[in-house]
Amino acid sequence: MNIKFHIQDLNFYFNNNKVLKLINFEIPANIILGIIGPSGSGKTTFLRALNRMNDLESGSRIEGQILFDGEDIYSSDYDVVALRKRVGMVFAMPVPLPMSIYDNIVYGPRLSGVNDKKRLDVLVEKSLTAAYLWDEVKDRLKTSAMRLSGGQQQRLCLARVLAMEPEVILLDEPCSGLDPISTAKIEDALTELKKEYTIILVTNNTKQAARVSDYTAFFLMGDLIEVGNTGQIFTSPNKTETNDYITGRFG
């Protein structure tokens, strides 16, 4: 199986606070990896380490290696901007940029030098359709993205990532503020998308991980307790902590 990310002896610090402790595992391509764990476990930090968004935090420091397609993304000559084009991210709080729906979607492609109007139009329709949003907004692409509902904004954020045609999509609790219908739409979209993309989904909802992910990783207090097939993790976990968490005994 093709491996997208090798995580090797990863330690992560905010100032002197060790937030990720000696993480080792591999993320295969074209799967959905669900990451679960109580809040404060380092799930967001781990996700943001994969596209180097943590670089923006002052006092953040990394040890160990993260290899993306075999290349160390933290080596000093690695192109971070190119990395973020290949590894797209949807944040927990859906925040479109303060511009029209259309401009939000073409923001990424334009940065990559795509300026052909026809090509952009195609991208817009394609990515909005894939994010299950096209039908709701196709008649008002030029209106401000800020006027969409929360669920629509989150799908817009997914669509603008898809428009960049990345290889990996990182999602940080994308459904935490959404109603069940919007959540179902996002989950449907993700299941459809894993054919073309590698998807890493942090979720505070263990049922969601059980529903959509192929692999599940359980983080607790900065430790990766267990990672494996979703079926195995949810039916016969190897660690008691995992069992306690998925049966709702803590967290």
């Binding site: 923006l56 190119a82 973020r84 797209g88 944040f91 925040v95 923001y107």
Partner: peptide
């Protein structure tokens, strides 16, 4: 200007300067 605008732009593969002139200055 909300931090999330900058983060959103950077996560979409914009450089710092692209983020400044396409998002921050506008906002």
């Amino acid at each position: 200007v909300p931090r999330s605008y900058r983060e959103g732009s950077l996560a979409l593969g914009a450089t710092t300067w692209q983020t400044i002139h396409m998002v921050t200055i506008k906002a």
